[in-house]
Structures are given as structure tokens and as C-alpha cells.
Amino acid sequence: MKQHIIALAMALGLSACSTAPHQPADNSSGQATTSTGASLVMDRPMYLRGDFTLWDADEVYRLTQTQTGVYSVRVRFMSPGKVYEFKVADAKWTPGYNCGFRYDGKVSLGKPLAADCDTVYNYFGFMPDRKGWYRISLDLRGATPQIIVQRD
């Protein structure tokens, strides 16, 4: 059975990881854009989705606007030294609303990291140095969306 599933996945060209991250385009209007050049507009609920949520769109992890163009959610990480994998996406993983890393997925505390909201597998990785509450934010104020993780 397992060989049949693997053969089917190979025949369909499915992969468990991306070979290269998508490259979102920047535009001169100062709005965040996807790799197709379309502006990302928060016209639907967005969720922090990761290994700690079983990749589900859970209301507990729904982003809320904290200031103009910035959306965030609090999360409690209880295992220092563990790499938590996550993305920000809508409930249906819609292209243009599926935000993963743009160039590099390793998130450092307090340092913004470019996001691409038109990805499939490019999830972020964050390793807290201590357990506690953190705030993960999606900042859409610039030409490129950014993810930032801060202690809360």
C-alpha cells in the first residue's frame, strides 16, 4: 500500500518540500504583493498554521489587526530548543493568502523576515530559547510582507 501511495505521488509530481522559494514581486505603490504581483489585501480571516496546530485554521490562532497593516496573534511555545514550523494562511490555503518564507525560513526573535504569500511548502521555523508567550505578526505596510516574532 505504501509503495502505491509513493508511486502515485511521484506520478503526479508531488513533493514534500519546495526546491526553491517563490520570489514575490515588489511594486512601486508600497503595498505588499504576491509572486504574481497582486497586492495582498486582508479581506478574509488569516490564521497562524503550524505543526503546533496540526496545520489547521483554528480560531485560537486567528490573526487580528493590531495597527494599520499589521496583523498578529499570541502563541505559547512550551519547548525551548524545539523548532516550531508555521505559516500564515487563510482557511483554504488560497494562492495569494498562503504566506511562507521568501528567501530563508529561519526566524530570529525580533527580526523581520520577508514573506511570500503565494507559497506552498515554504514554512517558517522558529526556535524559542525559553518557554512562554510570543507574538507572531504579519506586517503588510511595506512592498514585501514580513513576519516578525517577539516575546509577549
Rank of each mutant, 00 (worst) to 15 (best):
I6T: 04
D152C: 08
C17P: 01
T68R: 15
G30M: 09
Y61L: 06
F52C: 02
T68N: 15
K92V: 13
P45K: 05
Q31K: 09
D58W: 07
V83W: 02
S28M: 06
V41L: 06
K2H: 09
G37P: 04
Q146S: 10
R76A: 06
L109D: 05
K87Q: 12
Q146E: 11
S28T: 14
G100K: 15
P80C: 08
W55I: 04
L138G: 00
A32M: 02
V73C: 02
T36H: 05
A38W: 01
R62I: 00
Q3R: 12
N122T: 15
Y121F: 15
Y84P: 06
R151L: 08
G96K: 01
R49V: 06
G30T: 10
K92P: 01
I136E: 02
P21H: 05
D58M: 11
P95I: 12
K111Y: 07
S39N: 15
A32G: 15
F86C: 04
I136A: 00
E59Q: 13
T64G: 09
R135Y: 03
T144V: 13
S29L: 09
Y97C: 09
Q3W: 05
L40H: 14
Q3S: 12
W133A: 08
P112G: 10
T119G: 14
G96Y: 12
R62T: 00
S72G: 03
K131T: 11
P80D: 00
L54V: 04
M1P: 08
R76V: 08
P45Q: 08
P128E: 06
R151I: 12
A38Y: 05
